[in-house]
Design a protein around this nucleic acid. Structure first.
Lengths: 233, 233
DNA sequence: TTCCAGATATTGGTTAACCAGATATTTACA
DNA sequence: TGTAAATATCTGGTTAACCAATATCTGGAA
């Protein structure tokens, strides 16, 4: 049976098949952290796929910190151990595409934390940036225009002010999907937008006052109105 | 002045320079969501870089949901609007590499949530998987061996049981960095490992009993010991 | 003028040859 | 025999030519 047929049978993409084979190879050869993988050419030959395919699979595993490539030298098993590697690859292979509910759930979690951290850590410059984003939002809403983008940019400014680059990155990753879904179902109406101004202002004020507890509460109120009213989440 | 010199002066990588130029181009040409970008060949020509460079920059912007490429057709501005796009690209360009503190902070946030969700949503299969991970951890510890990897795999099993694919992905992203740092500073000693068994067991039990509040508390205890004792975070 | 088939040009994706640097091997000399 | 220099090989990365699908143009028929 050829590779293509095998993929179709198991419902796996080519990349996932290759990742799985790389995992098996590492186990079969008992490769330890720091050991070198066979060269890309050898792998592409062995698996009967193109070198590009191999490179893409390796790049994905690099993204998750499982391998790392060094130019003109080779690709190496990262310093995380075989057991963790096996478990993580299993997880990566089975990872589903995120649904909107999981995105919103994660967004709320992150925002309740970043707003608190922002209240604690915001610099004067952060404050200025947030104010700019807030003003842009207010102008758009008062003009009766859609302001989903300005809305999200205000929230991203908060994430940045949190001083936590990991959370900032994660917020950036989920934001476009949130925007797309918002615009797809064109969430809520103008009346709510007016309310949004007050809520955003309250969040901003709490951050300015460096009151983390109040900031978190105001953010909670904001989401409570937004999502429970619009979606019943 | 050539491009290379400009980069060195501003301390930007080639990719960031290209991303910035793409942003400027979209603004200059007033491209709206759904509009087509100039072809890769044209861009590489215009910017004086190779097509590969352009492709990598586009792929990064695709990852963040700002562009999307369609084979044999073109690369298009995603449906998120110009304002959001500009703000997001600014953020992406200024994004710093995550420090360990921000990783730990994010990890704790995610784990306190996933453990709660896992207690609410875990299936029998999830439970089985968590038990396996827990047993593997216990065996390693009782044998006096280092068990960082098994530790993290137990936590990843919880993340999976949470039923939230976004949080699951995020946990996978930060895990290797956590492991590496743990092993680098070889966190804590055997005495703590014995305690770890009891803590993990308590977390597992709470999830099995479907008691979200208790599960969260036990996870909090776990981190309290782990990080406050070892790092003073 | 409108419409549609066919030809042409353009697109992102793929491939194979090429590159510079790292590594392994051989050679030459002490 | 040991060591260092020279050479050959192998590495991931880069590049330019190629591919098939798509979009656009052209010209003639209705």
């Amino acid at each position: 049976m050829n590779l293509e047929a095998l993929q179709k049978m198991e419902g796996l993409s080519l990349q996932k098949t290759i990742i799985s084979k790389i995992k098996d190879l590492i186990n079969y050869k008992n490769l330890e952290p720091g050991d070198k993988l066979p060269s890309e050419r050898m792998l592409s030959d062995k698996f009967g796929v193109t070198r590009s395919n191999i490179r893409e699979a390796i790049q994905k595993l690099e993204f998750y910190g499982i391998l790392n490539s060094i130019p003109q030298s080779g690709t190496f098993v990262a310093n995380i151990g075989v057991i963790a590697m096996n478990g993580m690859i299993e997880d990566i292979l089975r990872l589903e595409d995120p649904d909107f509910k999981s995105l919103v759930e994660t967004r709320i979690l992150l925002e309740l934390k970043t707003v608190r951290l922002a209240a604690l850590r915001r610099t004067e410059n952060d404050l200025k940036k947030m104010k700019e984003a807030l003003d842009a939002y207010i102008i758009k809403v008062k003009d009766g225009q859609d302001a989903v983008q300005e809305d999200l940019l205000f929230h991203l400014a908060i994430a940045k002010a949190s001083g936590n680059s990991t959370m900032n990155t994660f917020m950036l990753i989920i934001t476009p999907e949130i925007i797309t879904n918002f615009e797809k179902y064109h969430v809520c109406d103008k009346g709510l937008a007016e309310l949004g101004i007050a809520e955003h202002q309250a969040i901003y004020d709490a951050i300015q006052e460096q009151n983390p507890k109040l900031a978190k509460q105001k953010m909670k109120d904001h989401f409570s109105v937004l999502y429970q009213y619009c979606y019943n989440i």
